[in-house]
Each structure stands twice: as structure tokens, then as C-alpha cells.
């Protein structure tokens, strides 16, 4: 990169990269990469704004280990039946909300378009990711928590692929 060198990337740009890589993995159908964005005992929950605001704990998806996320993907690949479909995530810029221990809390908005095999495209979900992000042993940013809070409480047909 020439004599100017490369400055250490700011936290913000690292969060942007994390979110971009996460969205890209899902949208490319590289689902096996999805659990790897989480720490071993990380939490993923897919819920709605109403449930979140009311302190309802259950999610549409709920996993408190990376292995549970892997099971989600195995089921998606081997067990569950659904019509072929893809997502396109449009992810907003992260807001860093607070430092928590060795990690940060951040919030990022998302919009997901679902593309069905026949070409039908719908806004499938909008919402925000509420994240607690830490570095793993190798210095990579990973999710200790990622709560995907959908703005709407209504899900069309089914949710096979995670958001």
C-alpha cells in the first residue's frame, strides 16, 4: 500500500466489515459459514420488536451455542422442506452504543428481500441487529450476542434461512 502504510482500521470499519461478511455469507447461500460469526457459547435470537419491548424471551429462532446454529444449518440442508429461495440483506451502518467489558454493544438496521424460485420478490423483514461483539482468541470480531429484532411481528409463510 505504498509508503503511507495502512492505519489500524477503526472499530467502526471493523464492525462494517463484520456485518458485510455476515450478510454476504447468508445471501450467497454459504450457510455453513454463518455459525462461525459467533463465539462458541454465543447467543442468536430472531424475534420481533413487540416481543422485545415486552420482555418476551422466546424467539422464532433461539440458539445459545455455536453448535445449535450448526444444527439450524444441518436441518436447513437435510431435514426441512421449503421452496427454493434466497435473501438479499441490505445492512445499515452500525451504531456503537457502549463498551461492555472487552466487547462493544452495537445496533445495525437491516432490510431483507426474499427472492422466491419463481422470481417473486418481497420485503421479507426489516429490523435491527442488537449485538454484543467481542474478539475471539485470534483477534477476529465475533458475536457474543446477536438479537435480530424484526420490526413486524408477522412472518410470511416460513422462516427457513436465518436473518
Amino acid at each position: 500500500m505504498g509508503s503511507m502504510g495502512v492505519s489500524a482500521p477503526s472499530l467502526n470499519s471493523r464492525l462494517i466489515e463484520l456485518n458485510a461478511a455476515y450478510a454476504r455469507a447468508i445471501d450467497d447461500g454459504n450457510f455453513e459459514a454463518w455459525p462461525e460469526f459467533f463465539l462458541e457459547d454465543g447467543l442468536y435470537k430472531l424475534t420481533s420488536a413487540d416481543n422485545h419491548a415486552q420482555g418476551m424471551e422466546a424467539g422464532v429462532m433461539y440458539a445459545d451455542s455455536r453448535n445449535m446454529l450448526r444444527d439450524r444449518i444441518s436441518a436447513l440442508r437435510v431435514a426441512n422442506i421449503y421452496e427454493r429461495q434466497r435473501y438479499r440483506h441490505i445492512v445499515g451502518l452500525p451504531s456503537v452504543l457502549a463498551s461492555v467489558g472487552s466487547g462493544v454493544r452495537s445496533e445495525t438496521s437491516f432490510l431483507v428481500v426474499r427472492i422466491m424460485r419463481d422470481g417473486t420478490m418481497d420485503v421479507f423483514a426489516t429490523g435491527r441487529y442488537l449485538d454484543l461483539i467481542e474478539e475471539d482468541a485470534d483477534g477476529n470480531l465475533r458475536f457474543r450476542e446477536r438479537i435480530a429484532v424484526c420490526d413486524s411481528n408477522r412472518f410470511d409463510t416460513l422462516v427457513a434461512i436465518p436473518l
Binding site: Y62, A63, R72, N80
Partner: peptide, 27 residues
């Protein structure tokens, strides 16, 4: 038990391991 119910909620609902197909089969 609370934790158990949160985990097993994965079985049902719109993304349920054993119920998501019911969301599409009627269609």
C-alpha cells in the same frame, strides 16, 4: 425449565424445525 422452553420453541412456529413445512404445504 424456562431455558428448556426457549430452546424447544425452535421446534415450532414460523421457523420451527418440525412445523415450518406446515407453513408452505397448504400453499
Amino acid at each position: 425449565m424456562r431455558k428448556r422452553r426457549l430452546k424447544q420453541a425452535n421446534l415450532v412456529g414460523p421457523a420451527g424445525f418440525v412445523s415450518m413445512e406446515d407453513g408452505c404445504v397448504g400453499g
